[in-house]
């Protein structure tokens, strides 16, 4: 009973937040609603008994990806009126994507009898362990491949944004700590009325 209640709570907040993402006027609010949607999706995962996925969703998407989103959106100088203008132009595309997703969900819903059964977790194996077993044994090559793709994406992003600037003073901590008394301090005894003569 309680679980059903929580399901409807999480599900309705997810849907509402999703709606607010696309309808709110301020892009920062949109991102904040997106975070709320992620969070409630994590709640749905917990109800499914997939606590590892739920936590991963929160750590990765909410804790890292959405922070960067928020960062970028807050830093941009956005003209709110201009943002609305493309609405008519992009609407068919959006409707198309939405329609495809809806069709997929309906397909699953009406053919649920033919779908492969969800594997019932044996109680002795937590789903963290179960996921690890499958990921690192059966799908190890795909897993490594995904890692490589992410690495390439990361290197690409760095290569695109890194610019070499000249005449920038940088702190070289190694050379700073390697300085000794001998090469930085010189003791000179100065006779009065003459000043120091540098050789």
């Amino acid at each position: 009973m309680i679980e059903t209640l929580f399901f409807y709570l999480f599900a309705s907040i997810t849907c509402l937040a999703g709606l607010m993402v696309i309808s709110s006027r301020n892009p920062v609010h949109s991102v904040l609603f997106l975070i709320l949607a992620f969070f409630n999706a994590a709640g749905l995962f917990v109800l499914l008994g997939a606590e590892f996925l739920a936590m991963l969703l929160v750590v990765v998407y909410v804790g890292a990806v959405a922070v960067l989103f928020l960062f970028v959106v807050m830093m941009l100088d956005i003209n709110f009126v201009e943002l609305r203008e493309g609405f008519q132009r992009y609407m068919p595309l959006g409707l198309g994507v939405g329609g495809v997703l809806l069709a997929e969900i309906l397909f699953v819903f009406f053919n649920s009898a033919d779908m492969p059964e969800t594997v019932v977790m044996v109680n002795e194996v937590s789903n963290t362990r179960a996921l690890g077993r499958i990921l690192y044994t059966d799908y190890i090559y795909l897993f490594q491949l995904a890692g490589l793709i992410l690495l390439v994406a990361m290197i690409g992003a760095i290569a695109l944004t890194l610019r070499k600037r000249e005449n920038v003073r940088r702190q070289s901590i190694a050379s700073q700590t390697e300085r000794t008394r001998a090469d930085s301090i010189e003791v000179v005894s100065v006779p009065s009325n003459t000043g120091v003569k540098r050789s």
Partner: peptide, 25 residues
């Protein structure tokens, strides 16, 4: 006493940044 306790802690501590960003913005 949940199975993924340490991940839960990590997740919650990583959410702390939102309070600060929201306040600042």
């Amino acid at each position: 006493d949940i199975n993924v306790g340490i991940l839960y802690l990590f997740a919650v501590s990583s959410l702390g940044v939102y309070g600060i960003i929201m306040a600042g913005w």
